[in-house]
């Protein structure tokens, strides 16, 4: 819940639990969740590449696996935990206002 200190008190992070109740009742919730998850992980990958890190979903698409080029990996349950683990692995803060990161995102070719 608190994204700064990453204390986890809810099962699902706020950014991952927004689903239209109508969609869920129609049984399309899991499809929408996986689509959102795919887009989120793809963008996370672009951002973390700037810090020489990578990220992927685990088999269930419920956890993220963040790793560095030395082969170190960590499984985290939410994006809140991911930022903290990634900053530790990168050895520096991950700042979305960093001009170098933004320049890289602007010039990144579409995969």
């Amino acid at each position: 819940m608190c994204v700064l200190c990453s204390q986890m008190f809810t099962e699902i992070h706020w950014s991952e639990r927004l689903l239209d109740p109508e969609t869920v009742s129609q049984g399309a919730g899991e499809t929408i969740r996986r689509q959102s998850r795919h887009g989120r992980t793809r963008l996370l990958g672009k951002v973390l590449a700037h810090y020489s890190l990578d990220v992927s979903d685990d088999w269930s698409a419920m956890n993220y696996v963040v790793g560095n080029r030395k082969g170190k990996q960590q499984v985290v349950g939410s994006v809140a935990e991911l930022w903290q683990a990634a900053a530790k692995m990168a050895g520096r803060p991950l700042d979305p206002l960093d001009p170098a990161l933004l320049q890289r995102l602007r010039t990144e070719p579409e995969a």
Binding site: S15, L43, P96
Partner: peptide, 12 residues
């Protein structure tokens, strides 16, 4: 999803 990534990172 992109908004969630951005805001989470900003607050962190």
């Amino acid at each position: 999803p992109a908004f969630g990534v951005w805001l989470g990172m900003l607050l962190q």
